[in-house]
């Protein structure tokens, strides 16, 4: 009997996640297969045991943990949230990257549809990225007011703080750099953290309208207008890689 193809169903049965149809199929198989019936019992028993394993840590562990904490200065960022218009523009980009949650209820945002996005590889080929799991779900943007537009593409992925610093050297006040350094220490990047830095001018009202209506293609310079440049940082995960340049376009 071809029992191997029932393994996924047996495992789903352990999870209690079988559909009605799957339940019927498995039940029919088990009725004539004592081996799988026995296996299912064993899988259920061992899962039950694993779920209730208790391992008490050493009694002094929490004291050890707390005694090693480095003293740290009070942290916090002076984040400018004044211009919801600009945030909404960033939101349009970020939603396209799958970081939907932080903006779901952002004032001034009309919850735009995800924009299409592509990576531009060094060889010039454009490859669409997978739509899911690109961006760490708890990412949240921080928007800073800058004095000039950094000379970078619409979005670039950085995997070291020094790269971000380099991008911003000519346009960010020292206070912004310090705040960013406090928020994203090197340990952050050791954890596989990657930052997506998006730059855009605070858009004029018509440009913003265009953007949220998804008829605008956002490239550096296309939103030049009044206002300052903006930096948005959000944490992204695999499969982004440091140095990857992202070109963002609104969905057709």
């Amino acid at each position: 009997m071809d029992c191997d193809r029932y393994l996924d169903l047996l495992s789903a049965a352990v999870d209690g996640s079988l559909s009605l149809e799957e339940q019927r199929a498995l039940k029919a198989h088990l009725a004539r297969c004592p081996s799988c019936t026995r296996l299912l019992e064993q899988l259920q028993a061992q899962s039950q045991i694993l779920r209730t394993v208790e391992d008490a840590p050493p009694a002094d562990l929490s004291a050890r943990i707390l005694s090693q904490l480095p003293a740290q200065k009070k942290r916090g960022l002076a984040v400018s949230w004044r211009r919801w218009g600009a945030l909404a523009a960033c939101a349009a980009l970020a939603l396209g990257l799958g970081i939907a949650h932080p903006w779901a209820h952002a004032p001034g945002s009309d919850a735009p549809q995800p924009a299409e996005y592509r990576t531009t590889n060094p060889d010039g080929n454009q490859n669409p990225l997978p739509q899911d799991r690109c961006v760490v779900s708890y990412a949240q943007p921080q928007v800073f007011s800058l004095s000039a537009l950094p000379a970078v593409p619409a979005a670039v992925v950085v995997d070291q703080f020094s790269q971000l610093e380099q991008l911003l050297a000519h346009c960010a006040p020292q206070s912004v750099l310090e705040a960013l350094a406090a928020c994203y220490p090197s340990a952050y990047f050791e954890e596989g953290g990657l930052l997506l830095a998006v730059t855009a001018c605070a858009p004029s009202a018509p440009a913003l309208e265009q953007l949220t209506a998804h008829s605008a293609v956002l490239t550096p310079g296309s939103l030049q207008g009044e206002g300052s440049a903006w930096l948005l940082v959000a944490q992204v995960g695999q499969p982004f890689q440091g140095g990857q340049v992202l070109t963002l376009t609104a969905a057709p």
């Binding site: 942290r75 779900s137 708890y138 952050y188 944490q235």
Partner: peptide, 9 residues
Amino acid sequence: RNLPAFRRD
């Protein structure tokens, strides 16, 4: 160290 980058959602 990384709590400031942790997002509560």
